[in-house]
Write a protein that binds this DNA or RNA. Structure first.
Length: 513
RNA sequence: GGCCCCGUGGUCUAGCGGUCUAGGACAUCGCCCUCUCAAGGCGGGGACACGGGUUCGAACCCCGUCGGGGCUACCA
């Protein structure tokens, strides 16, 4: 045994990283870093039918994206390798042989049908359903006979009829009378160990000091305690964390929304926001701070402040965190985060790295005519316009789209409002707007701003009403970044082209009526 | 059914016998600011599940009820 803390996360390779797994991993990692201990990642893949290499990678990728790093694991190795249960069969086998040898475990030849019947009978007569030990005392001859019949077997552990107890980090003293438990299976008929047994062997051999996992394992702990005792091992300290719930208070599931880390990524959430949110769901810093970087979490983390009641996963709060992180991020960094979403929306070519002009890249898919759209400064200036307007990265293409297309989609109804109830008002405004634009020689933010304000004031039309028409003409939308900045980004040429096109479009509308 | 865990506003939580006319955050509502949308500022409404104890005194301790959840597998 080592003195320093060794904690772990032991996900089963399901293909995706579940938020619950992520949060448990986070707490374990924080504890390890806080105490100067080690954080181990082990893959619990004893359920052969569901385990593949790809499904393991999906889990690791989710954790990595969140910034969760482990000191030992199947990918990075470590002094306690291997870190996949599938590769540790010999180890479990040795432990089982020892129990078998000491007669603390035995082979059970009962078929599923027999067990179902036993269970049904017990229930019918009001007794607790459990294994009553039919194969507990078979002689070698009896075993041979059963095997000759071609029957397979599982291995059951002899559960002592007594009370087992442990001190839970969050819930203090826990105890359970195991008299009614019945001998449970530790090795399946295919020879693979059951989770409750394999985990005991691993925890012990990997010198795990603290096992922190979800409450759903609390009852399992007593089964595991049986194994620790019969194997003659000291059990680690246990802590049973709360569950995350759907808004209807059921255990969090796909049904109520996103549950996998990859989904949150796709939805435009930032890893630092998700981490911050997850950290505060089931733990509090003891003061009223809300925003935490990973390092700050490490400093503030403590086992005492873990909460005991389950928490509903409230996306609204996650959204708020995401907005906060987007707003306080340097523009250049935000631009980098937004870039992939602009590319995926088809607004920018996948091959552009966000920095150099495309001609330097020699990329054939880049149209040569859009020079400034593939400019770093342009990207950052555009980003700055939406920084405090978006909550998720996925909103960027929607808000910035007009800057990256040749033509925007115009609809008569978009122009229409209380003032512009027919196209006449729109036409009047746009004609005036075109004149103002033409009059601005130095197409910089300042002159655009002052000239427009001045001329619009002279026109007697309210600023907002006037700019809404320009907004629709230039962007095709009624919700966009501020107009003066947008005009500046678009450039004089494009602004004039779009206003002219809008006027033509509206004139056509009038003619039709 | 049995065993176990949990129960402060809609949500996450602070509170660990008096400092609680219960604090913070998200959400919500109103106002201000404002070229749309946001962001920001100011303000409002809203909770100790219920019932018994213990105590001079209970959100905090005890018991019960109710509610939610978990386990009871050759899933983890």
């Amino acid at each position: 045994m080592t003195d320093s803390v060794r904690v772990r996360i032991a996900p089963s390779p399901t293909g995706n990283c579940h938020v619950g797994t992520a949060r448990t991993a986070l707490y374990n990692m924080l504890y390890a870093r806080k105490t100067g201990g080690k954080f181990i990642l082990r893959i619990d893949d004893t359920d052969l039918s569901r385990s593949t290499k790809e499904s393991e990678e999906g889990v690791l990728e989710g954790l990595r994206w969140l910034g969760i790093k482990w000191d030992e694991g199947p990918d990075v190795g470590g002094p306690y390798a291997p870190y996949r249960q599938m590769e540790r069969y010999d180890t479990y086998k040795r432990a089982v042989e020892e129990l078998l040898h000491k007669d603390l475990a035995y082979k059970c030849y009962c078929t599923k049908e027999e067990l179902d019947k036993e269970r049904a009978d017990a229930l019918a007569s009001g007794k607790p359903p459990r294994y009553y030990g039919k194969c507990a005392h078979l002689s070698a001859d009896q075993q041979k006979a059963l095997e000759a019949e071609g029957r397979g077997h599982v291995i059951r552990i002899r559960v002592p009829e007594k009370v087992f107890s442990f001190e839970d980090i969050l819930r203090e003293h826990q105890e359970k009378d195991m008299s009614e438990r019945g001998d449970f299976v530790i090795v399946k008929s295919d020879g693979s160990p059951v989770y409750n047994f394999a985990t005991v062997v691993d925890e012990h051999l990997m010198d795990i000091t603290h096992v922190m996992r979800a409450v759903e394992h609390l009852t399992n702990t007593f089964d595991q305690l049986v194994a620790y005792e019969l194997l003659g091992w000291k059990a680690p300290t246990f802590g049973h964390l709360t569950l995350m719930l759907n808004p209807d208070r059921t255990k969090i599931s796909k049904r109520a929304g996103a549950v996998y880390i990859g989904e949150f990524r796709q939805m435009g959430y930032l890893p630092e926001a998700l981490i911050n949110f997850l950290a505060l769901l089931g733990w509090n810093p003891g003061d009223e701070r809300e925003m935490f970087t990973m390092d700050e979490l490490v400093k503030a983390f403590s086992l005492e402040n873990l909460s005991k009641s389950d928490a509903i996963f409230d996306v609204k709060k996650l959204d708020w965190f995401n907005g906060e992180y987007i707003r306080k991020m340097p523009v250049a960094e935000l631009a980098d985060r937004i870039l992939p979403f602009l590319k995926d929306a088809g607004l920018l070519p996948q091959c552009w790295n966000g920095h150099h002009k495309p001609d330097v890249l020699g990329c054939e898919t880049v149209p040569v005519c859009h020079g400034h759209r593939y400019d770093r400064k342009f990207l950052e200036d555009a980003t700055a316009q939406i920084q405090e307007r978006i909550v998720k990265l996925t909103e960027a293409p929607e808000m910035l789209g007009f800057l990256f297309v040749d033509e925007v989609e115009l609809k008569a109804e978009t122009f229409r409002d209380k003032q512009a109830h027919d196209a006449a008002f729109s036409l009047k405004v746009l004609e005036a707007a075109e004149k103002i634009m033409e009059g601005i020689v130095d197409w910089e933010k300042e002159p655009i701003d002052t000239t427009f304000r001045e001329k619009i004031a002279e026109s007697g039309i309210k600023l907002g009403d006037f700019l809404m028409q320009v907004r629709v003409a230039l962007t095709g939308k009624r919700v966009t970044p501020p107009m003066f900045e947008s005009m500046h980004l678009l450039g004089k040429r494009a602004c004039l082209d779009r206003v002219k096109r809008a006027r033509a479009f509206l004139a056509g509308e009038v003619a039709e009526v």
